[in-house]
Design a protein around this nucleic acid. Sequence first.
DNA 1: TCTTTTATTATTACCGGGTATCATTTTTAG
DNA 2: CTAAAAATGATACCCGGTAATAATAAAAGA
Lengths: 144, 144
Amino acid sequence: MKSNFLLQSLKDNGHTLTRPRRAICDLLLECGGHLSADQLVEKLQIEYPEIGRMTVYRTLDLLSSLGVLRAVYQGGGAAHYILLEGGHHHHLVCAICHRVIEIDQCLLQDATEQISRQYRFQILGHLLEILGVCEQCQAKTPLN
Amino acid sequence: MKSNFLLQSLKDNGHTLTRPRRAICDLLLECGGHLSADQLVEKLQIEYPEIGRMTVYRTLDLLSSLGVLRAVYQGGGAAHYILLEGGHHHHLVCAICHRVIEIDQCLLQDATEQISRQYRFQILGHLLEILGVCEQCQAKTPLN
DNA sequence: TCTTTTATTATTACCGGGTATCATTTTTAG
DNA sequence: CTAAAAATGATACCCGGTAATAATAAAAGA
């Protein structure tokens, strides 16, 4: 049984580890994030048909407020949620196919410290989103 | 009469500079961005009561597709739009009062070039959003 | 200029993601 | 075991954004 930092965070902050919350946190971790609320609901229905929409939304909000999850709103559709184990997240978004490519390394250690001092801003986390064209789409639709 | 790079972009791409579009682009530049579509509509109503919601949404979409504007979706409410004269944008978001503090300098010149090579990703722009607590809110609610 | 074609706009109705409400159930504390 | 508190689920609702369409304005051609 692997540990789940989402559940751990709930526990550490005095929240109950209920069946729905366990299911949601496990699924989130299993899928590595990048799911929308409705996608979560749909997947949960298979094994836990009793879990309702509201609980999913509420749990996602709760996790977000604890700083271990983050809602990302790309234009148009539903928000998707990314795991924030290290307090930060970087990813590339393809403007054509909307593929999301995650970047593990953090490019901003120094930069954020500088910002923090300069603006007297207490940093909780950051999100870097790079918009562009992925390799596959460059091949399909050469822009030049 | 100062130049408006939003209007210029429309012109350069063969779009008509109509009265509504002029009004929208002027207002966007005047306010320095960070307005929602409905805020724009409301402000426009004062001087141009004939301009409808749809036109505003369409114009914002058009400008976004040209890469000179970008919709930013913070959780909850409506998207707001930021000017992208240089193709990128950085800002700080206060987790408590939701104030938005813009950062002028770009911290990512080197980092994005590295990403581009490493992932063979053709970068169009980037958005860095730093979440934290601003100076005023730190004073009001000391976290420790 | 007048006509034809194309682009843009305004109105309306609609859709879907997310929220508010509240009664019910589950969990915790005593 | 009982009472209080927390969490859940069903329903209805709200609001930001979209789709569709008819009318208008602008551009192009004769």
